[in-house]
Amino acid sequence: MRILLVEDAVDLAEATQGHLARNGIACDLAANVAEAGDCLAVQRYDVVILDINLPDGSGTDLLRNLRRGGNNVPVLMLTAQFSVDDKVSAFALGADDYLVKPFDHRELEARLHAMARRQQADKSGDTVIGRLSYNAVSGVVRADGERLDLTRREFALLGMFVRQRDQVLSKERLLEGLYSFDDAAVGVNAIELYVARLRKKLVNSGVGIRTLRGLGYKLEVDD
């Protein structure tokens, strides 16, 4: 999962990003509306966490513009004060959830997963490819009926292949899906490592990850 956190409180933003990263969630940071717009212009997100009060405008204005532009990314609004009027306004504009600061990072993470599951409600059943069964909502992957033990990043990587199984995915595209902009030290070698690990776990699944030299990788059913 990759999210965008739009928050101008540096300590809160970095602490949240760190917690999510430790739990396998890539999180990009934007300190204001303008930076958020730049991120949204170049990257697709599973969820946007949006503070209401920002230095260069209101988070609700950004939310309004997203919905007017046809962007239906799930949005969780943040505010430092409990205000029923703020909540009603945010939901009317298309917000999906609401959290009052200060908050527990565990609750935030749980809400993010719930929002992502709701977004994939139309894909809630198992996706079967070969002898592989993948369920994005339950987080369960099986091969020949046996559950595979995948790490969070391996599951996320497999999810990208499953959702785009007719496409060749470059290392750069996979890197974007697994890591945030702030993970500058992470290179494409990390993708090679995760692909290699995932290949080993898919040995008895009836599918494999094919390398297309110079292009990237593609999920294919074994012959």
Rank of each mutant, 00 (worst) to 15 (best):
A116N: 11
C27H: 06
G208W: 08
R173W: 12
L40K: 09
L5Q: 05
G59F: 10
V75H: 09
L108R: 07
A31C: 11
L215F: 15
R118W: 04
L12P: 00
T151I: 02
N53C: 09
V48A: 04
D96C: 06
I3M: 02
V221Y: 03
S58F: 12
A110L: 15
D182W: 03
Q119T: 06
T151M: 06
D149L: 12
D38G: 01
Y134C: 00
N135Q: 07
E7M: 03
D183V: 00
G206L: 08
D96M: 01
K123A: 15
D11C: 01
D96P: 05
V75K: 09
L40P: 05
L108C: 06
A36E: 11
D122T: 10
L108N: 05
L132K: 09
S180I: 02
H105N: 13
A31D: 10
A13F: 02
D28C: 05
T211S: 15
H105D: 06
M115W: 00
Q164F: 14
V48P: 08
A34S: 13
L66H: 08
R147M: 12
K123P: 00
F91K: 05
R131L: 13
A184N: 11
M115D: 02
G206Y: 10
G145T: 03
N65L: 09
V73L: 08
L20G: 02
L219Q: 07
V42G: 03
Q164Y: 14
T127I: 14
G18D: 11
G206K: 11
V128T: 15
D166N: 14
V75R: 07
L63M: 05
P102N: 10
V88W: 07
